[in-house]
């Protein structure tokens, strides 16, 4: 692999990616190998630094079943509906409440973060 390709990949690694069907245009999340709407397997990816969405609901976790999360409690999560349609569970930073517009990015752990 060339240095240039590696560079492009690592830059791309922090981009948020959303699947969109090349056959019918439906966006979806979580990712899967086919379009949930038309069942085509011609799935493409859209990439952006951040995707706009709106908070549907939020929760603060005070308990976890995984020891590695214990130091981080409480963890605030939101259910976010992307303007593109799909709904995702995201970490929530800041004070956004249900109904508020947010932007969703991919963090260094490859997870979604809304603010």
């Amino acid at each position: 692999m060339s240095a240039g390709a590696r560079g492009r990949m690592s830059a791309g690694a922090r981009m948020i990616r959303l699947q969109r069907c090349a056959a019918c245009g439906t966006a979806q999340y979580p990712p899967r190998a086919f379009c949930h709407h038309c069942l085509s397997d011609r799935i493409g990816w859209e990439e952006a630094d951040a995707l706009p969405g709106r908070v549907l609901a939020r929760t603060s976790l005070h308990h976890t079943h995984e020891p590695r999360f214990r130091a981080h409690l409480p963890i605030t999560l939101a259910l976010v509906r992307f303007d593109a349609g799909p709904v995702a569970v995201c970490f929530l930073t800041g004070t956004a409440a249900p109904g508020d517009a947010v932007r969703v990015r991919r963090n260094e752990d490859d997870l979604l973060e809304a603010a």
Partner: peptide, 17 residues
């Protein structure tokens, strides 16, 4: 991967809504 809340996290979001 978002905190391992299991069903508690998902149902908390439903309960909030």
């Amino acid at each position: 991967p978002y905190g391992a809340g299991g069903p508690n996290a998902s149902f908390a979001l439903i309960a909030d809504a």
